Simulated scan of single mutants.
Amino acid sequence: MKFIPSLQQGKLVRRYKRFLTDVLLADGQERTIHCPNTGSMKNCLFEGEDVWFSESDNPKRKYPNTWEIAQTDEGHLIGINTGRANHLATEAIEQQVIPELAGYETLKKEVKYGNENSRIDILLTAPEQPNCYVEIKSCTLLEDNSGYFPDAVTTRGQKHLRELMEMAAQGHRAVLLFIVQHTGIDRVSPAAHIDPEYSALLKQAANSGVEIIAYGTTICPEEIKVTHAVDVLLDECI
């Protein structure tokens, strides 16, 4: 996923009111930009470090700039725009970067399914094969040299796990795909210390036939792309 036009750079001043971020530009001016991450952004906010943001040409937007990448104190880069995860996953599937999801003829997005009024992120289909339901989550929380999901309690995420378990019970393929948008994360575990219910459901889902996979990304101001598999350790909890 290339950034066109190129991203602009600044220094993080603060994030506030959930959806707003102030950045300091090279000329000394401060600019308020949109923060597209609805989570807690735990361990993703490093005041004074570099950030990169995109610009929209939509004249109706109050804040035309969107925060895309953050840098940590240790120099790791984080893709903080959670809305990019689905695009990254789609691109990776179409380019056959994820072998577990290869071999399907059609890819549909945001398809209604399940008993709890849900929409699956990606539905893969092919003749004479079970449908493959793929739920995508963006992982950006790094603690004690390990990646964790979620970074805040997620009742929505819990619902998605229940829906996936139902699809698996019906004989379909059900896949939870973590897109790791943090260059310092090389393994992912459920964050039982943050959302014990989600952690328990994730382990239950794995035991019920839901496939849990994770893929990491390379990140730079020019592009973010899915490049490599990342270990999922369901019993590695803080």
Rank of each mutant, 00 (worst) to 15 (best):
121 D>P: 11
144 D>F: 01
160 H>V: 09
171 G>M: 03
146 S>N: 04
149 F>C: 11
118 S>E: 14
126 A>Q: 12
181 Q>E: 01
169 A>G: 13
120 I>C: 05
124 L>A: 04
172 H>V: 12
138 S>N: 13
171 G>S: 06
179 I>S: 03
180 V>C: 09
139 C>R: 09
156 R>K: 14
124 L>Y: 07
160 H>K: 05
119 R>S: 06
164 L>I: 02
154 T>G: 07
141 L>H: 04
125 T>R: 11
137 K>W: 00
174 A>P: 06
167 M>I: 13
117 N>S: 11
135 E>Y: 06
158 Q>D: 10
120 I>Y: 03
174 A>H: 06
171 G>L: 01
176 L>F: 12
178 F>H: 01
150 P>S: 10
117 N>R: 15
169 A>S: 13
168 A>C: 05
153 V>L: 08
154 T>Q: 02
128 E>S: 02
156 R>E: 15
120 I>R: 09
167 M>S: 15
170 Q>Y: 15
177 L>K: 08
139 C>S: 08
121 D>K: 10
116 E>S: 12
160 H>E: 00
138 S>M: 01
171 G>D: 00
122 I>A: 00
140 T>W: 03
139 C>D: 06
126 A>G: 00
117 N>C: 09
140 T>C: 10
118 S>H: 06
133 Y>S: 04
132 C>T: 10
167 M>T: 15
170 Q>T: 10
138 S>A: 12
129 Q>T: 10
167 M>G: 08
117 N>K: 14
123 L>Q: 11
178 F>T: 01
147 G>H: 05
120 I>M: 11
171 G>F: 08
174 A>I: 09
163 E>T: 10
123 L>H: 00
155 T>S: 11
139 C>A: 11
125 T>K: 12
117 N>V: 00
132 C>M: 09
180 V>L: 11
152 A>Y: 09
152 A>E: 00
139 C>E: 02
135 E>D: 13
175 V>W: 11
138 S>D: 09
127 P>K: 06
175 V>R: 03
168 A>M: 09
161 L>C: 00
150 P>K: 03
159 K>G: 08
145 N>V: 03
122 I>L: 14
139 C>M: 12
148 Y>D: 04
151 D>H: 08
134 V>Q: 04
178 F>V: 03
154 T>V: 01
126 A>I: 02
153 V>M: 04
136 I>T: 12
